[in-house]
Simulated assay, not measured.
Amino acid sequence: MDTDSTMNLLYLVLLLAAVGGWIFTSGRRQLGKLAQQMAAWALIFVGVIAAIGLWDDIRGTVMPSQAVLQGGEISVPRAPDGHYYLDAVVNGTPLRFMVDTGATDIVLTQEDAGAVGIDPRSLVYSARAMSANGEVGIAPVVLDRVAIGPVETEGVRAMVNGGDMRQSLLGMRYLQQFSKIEIGDGALILTP
């Protein structure tokens, strides 16, 4: 152990002794109750330490995330709202998409378009599309590179939505490059 670690340990031991001594002297008339409270706090402390140590396992169970399986399959867990959200890297920038089998193309929000290097103010929203909120203007663009797990595609056709949209969409044209798309056991599986 180096000097800094030794000093930190000594400081913690002295702090524990001071706090423990104060608790003991202030509660010496009710030692039974004091012992109960100390045991409760010790169990809380051990529980917190265990939760911190197991956090990756707990998070993986409570909030499963996208994973690349053997053979390059991509597993996307169903979100609590019932949708599938897929993480991709577009033009070198990580983006989160909602998988939308009702959309034809990749549809970017204006914010996401700006994040990947496309100026949404300079686009011409000449095409029209029907959305859940009615008709909106869309601008066609070409994305240099889209990568989902081990699958990378160059020159990907996409659209930028001219209206308000909360989440970028990953449509069927992009999903068709996978040989198989399965939904089961709470996950969307994409097979290259």
Rank of each mutant, 00 (worst) to 15 (best):
K33R: 15
D87K: 14
V146R: 02
L43F: 08
I49A: 13
I49Y: 05
G114W: 07
I23Y: 15
L95A: 07
V89Q: 10
G163M: 04
T6F: 09
I44H: 07
G47E: 03
D4K: 11
A113F: 04
V62T: 08
A39R: 10
S26Q: 15
M159W: 11
A113T: 07
D81F: 05
A103C: 03
I74G: 02
V141P: 02
P64F: 06
P120N: 03
P64C: 05
V76L: 03
V160N: 04
G134M: 09
W41E: 03
V13L: 15
G163R: 06
S5A: 13
W22Y: 14
V156C: 03
T104C: 03
P192N: 14
G134T: 07
M7C: 06
S26N: 15
L54I: 05
G102L: 01
F45D: 10
L12S: 14
N133I: 08
G134A: 07
M38Q: 11
L15S: 10
Y125V: 03
I23Q: 14
G32C: 07
L10G: 09
L31P: 04
Q70P: 02
E152S: 15
E111A: 15
V19S: 04
R78L: 01
I138E: 08
M172F: 09
G137A: 12
Y11V: 07
I52P: 00
Q110I: 01
Q177S: 07
L95P: 02
M172V: 15
F24M: 12
L170M: 14
R96T: 11
V90R: 06
P140G: 13
P192E: 14
N8C: 05
Q36L: 14
V142M: 06
S26I: 09
A132R: 08
Q167G: 01
N133V: 08
G134W: 11
V124H: 09
N161G: 07
S126E: 10
A18S: 11
L9S: 08
G114R: 15
L31F: 13
R121I: 00
Q176G: 02
V46Y: 12
A158G: 01
I189D: 03
I118Y: 00
G82I: 11
G47P: 01
A35Y: 01
G155H: 05
P64Y: 04
A113P: 05
A17K: 05
W41V: 14
N161R: 04
Q70E: 13
P120V: 09
G117A: 04
M38D: 01
V19P: 00
G163V: 06
S65D: 06
V136K: 08
G32W: 10
Q177T: 02
I74H: 02
A67F: 00
